[in-house]
Nucleic acid binder design. Structure first.
Lengths: 247, 247
DNA sequence: CGAGCCCTTGAAACTCGTCAATGATCGTGG
DNA sequence: CCACGATCATTGACGAGTTTCAAGGGCTCG
């Protein structure tokens, strides 16, 4: 029995009631794991889509490269996150997947997915999970499209804090985020230099500090207001949506 | 028998083989239609999500408003397009839906959706269709995040041309697009003024003209190259993916 | 102890936004 | 049928936010 699937189970259990039997199914299918180092690419856009990836530990992102090297990061994968199950129906992968911090990753092939989806609750959980990921992607579009640099950085930090807090890996309003400012820039469509200046500004205002991979949110309420953050999109698909949302 | 569901049927039939029985099911459920005028809001973000919308004729968009009035359009709905079926599982609607040109819209409630999804092929078609919409949304993120104004406008026009061509409503490399420059701006995260200047530039270079709601692409190959457009994301989920993709 | 990556900072340039004014187009009512 | 108002396209001048270039400093790791 492989217990390393726990974060994955925890994440999915937020979207559908999962029994011990389904938990065991996840564990069995997360058995084949591999370790990856920072900057390893697990897949590149355009390759054959023959497997899914599940982050058991670590941190990764999906991105797309333009011909001249510009890069847009389109999603983050924390421990417990996985790539979109529907991906397996497509001939090619749309986004490259890159590990940003030493990670343990499980691989799910079509056969495994079929087995997992024979559990109705898992199928439901996968679908709702994927839907939530889509809501996040749309929110990023709004973030990049309409918000100022200051709001963008603040909004993303609010989102990450909320996501990590939901799985219990924050401590006293702080969390580890192994992202360089250049990577933050590729996420938020800002230059690394401007990300730096914006983080300075956030620090100067006493809202957030981000040093040595540690983000500390000093005043969530004020940050949230300044960034126009509303956690609704992160929780809408979950079973027992936290009632105490707006504050 | 209501034949107005034809564009909807055509669109879905690209994602799964649909029999006459399934076609009839669509027609029956598209029976309750309503007409809307330009700028009618069918739903607003935050309202209860109790129905889907299917565009039988016309043109609409989904958007989100920020507190101070900034607007990001997150998707276009042409004839045959529908809102995301998974939306019905959520308590609230995430995006407002606004008609941009006189339209005929069908409404699908949870009960109708359940009936439709009892057809396995329709369920598959819905899921793949929604997945393609998600790929488009991600592409928009890349567009807004990484491309210049010039590339953005070009890329969007390539996308729309490709989408409309697939359903046969283009004529000699031109198509109707009832969008104001301000709306284009809210889509591409540009000011209306800058959209105007960019369109001028595209015209000056002999790539595209956009006048009186008519877009004419004078040199698709060159536009496509200039914008870095690759139609893959539009066709990846479809059954018989056009083979002649890259050129 | 050096190499490499990352953060930080300044100066200059550029893209794009805002403000403002003029035309063009179109539907509507007189 | 024309005048009116409204909406939209167009253009210019100016300003703001952000990028780019460049250089220095700090940290980590071999």
């Amino acid at each position: 029995m492989n217990k390393s699937a726990t974060p994955w189970f925890r994440r999915l259990a937020r979207f559908a009631p999962l029994s011990p039997m389904e938990q065991r199914a996840l564990e069995e299918n997360a058995a084949a794991t591999r370790h990856f180092a920072t900057h390893d690419d697990l897949v590149k856009a355009g390759e054959t889509a023959d497997r899914l990836f599940v982050m058991l530990e670590g941190f990764a992102c999906q991105y797309r490269l333009l011909a001249d090297g510009r890069r847009q990061i389109v999603s983050f994968l924390f421990a417990g996150d996985m790539t979109d199950p529907r991906q397996l129906e497509l001939p090619q992968v749309d986004f490259s997947l890159c590990v940003l911090w030493p990670s343990v990753v499980a691989t799910i092939n079509a056969e495994s997915l079929r087995r997992l989806e024979s559990h109705a609750n898992l199928r439901t959980a996968f679908a709702r999970y994927a839907h939530t990921q889509q809501l996040i992607a749309r929110e990023w579009l709004i973030n990049v499209g309409q918000r100022t640099a200051f709001e963008r950085v603040g909004h993303l930090l609010c989102e990450i804090y909320t996501r990590l807090d939901a799985v219990g890996v924050t401590r006293d309003h702080s969390f580890e985020l192994p992202l360089t400012q250049a990577e933050l820039g590729d996420t938020l469509a800002l230059s690394a230099v401007h990300v730096n200046r914006t983080l300075m500004e956030l620090r100067r205002l006493g809202l957030v500090t981000f040093q040595n991979r540690l983000v500390r949110i000093h005043d969530f309420a004020r940050l949230r207001a300044a960034a126009g953050f509303d956690a609704g999109y992160l929780q809408r698909g979950e079973i027992a949506t936290g009632v105490a949302l707006s504050a």
